[in-house]
Write a protein that binds this DNA or RNA. Structure first.
Length: 259
DNA sequence: ATGGCAAATATGATTTGA
């Protein structure tokens, strides 16, 4: 059985709803994890999505953040927010689909390394590690994916010199990502040969997309059994070329699972 | 050194993002 799981920071689901529905219609994506839906739960377009024959769970808030998971088959064991971290911001939703535990995150941006927001980011990542560690004891098939707001290495940055010392690329953030991966998770994108200068986000300004001046910060981390089952990981740049695009592109993995 | 763009909130300018 083939299973395609994708992550996409949509930067407002209100603005991008038609693009999301088109994506589920036009691709063979089975599970689509969204970040930055930027809407309250009472405004969530649940009817439009379910009328398209899709299943969905979501955790939203006013103005910022917010996450959702859309799938072609049923979702169970819904977890909203980290159970071990008091948080006003809606940044995590986890569900089980078939044998796969899907953990969808919108990691804190962190603004700059000497700010309160950066401290919040580091504390949030520490709590995420605890949570994921426990989930991996309960589930063999774990996918941790989303907008990590961390570029894993300088190969994931168009201009590392310019980014030196900034959030998204700092040693502390990269160490926190490494500690997550040390739980037994692999960066799916790097399981395969990939083109140089592969990015998942491009600034809206200065024609950054046309110049391919971007970062790879949207990641899919797989537990070992899923890494073995993974046959592909791709960044789909097509939606970034659309009218009124999100500044992020969808990233997907294809898993070939037994049973 | 600064702003560039986009979205939300709100209706003018500010906040946030990465």
């Amino acid at each position: 059985m083939s299973l395609k799981i994708a992550t996409w920071n949509v930067n407002s689901l209100k603005v991008r709803l038609s693009q999301v529905l088109d994506y589920m219609r036009d691709t063979d994506t089975d599970v689509l994890c969204l970040q930055e839906i930027k809407m309250t739960d009472d405004a969530f377009p649940i009817d439009t999505i379910t009328e398209a024959g899709l299943h969905v769970n979501f955790s939203g808030q006013k103005t910022y953040n917010g996450v959702a998971i859309i799938s072609r088959t049923a979702q169970t064991e819904v977890q909203k927010n980290l159970p071990n971290f008091q948080d006003d911001q809606q940044r995590l939703i986890a569900v089980t689909i078939g044998s796969v535990r899907v953990i969808n995150v919108y990691v804190v941006n962190g603004q700059a390394p000497d700010t309160d927001k950066f401290t919040y980011k580091m504390n949030w990542l520490k709590a995420l590690r605890e949570y994921v560690s426990n989930e991996m004891r309960l589930h063999q098939h774990v996918v941790l994916l989303g907008d990590f707001n961390i570029a894993p290495t300088d190969a994931d940055v168009h201009n590392p010199d310019k980014w030196l010392g900034c959030n998204l690329v700092s040693p502390a953030e990269r160490q926190a990502l490494q500690e997550l991966m040390d739980l037994g998770l692999s960066d799916a994108f790097r399981l395969f040969e990939q083109p140089e200068k592969s990015f998942s986000w491009w600034d809206y300004r200065q024609m950054a997309f046309r110049r391919n001046a971007g970062l790879r910060i949207d990641l899919i981390l797989l537990s070992q059994p899923l890494a073995s089952a993974c046959i592909e990981c791709v960044i789909d740049k097509e939606p970034r070329k659309h009218e009124q695009p999100s500044d992020h592109a969808p990233v997907s993995v294809t898993l070939e699972l037994n049973t």
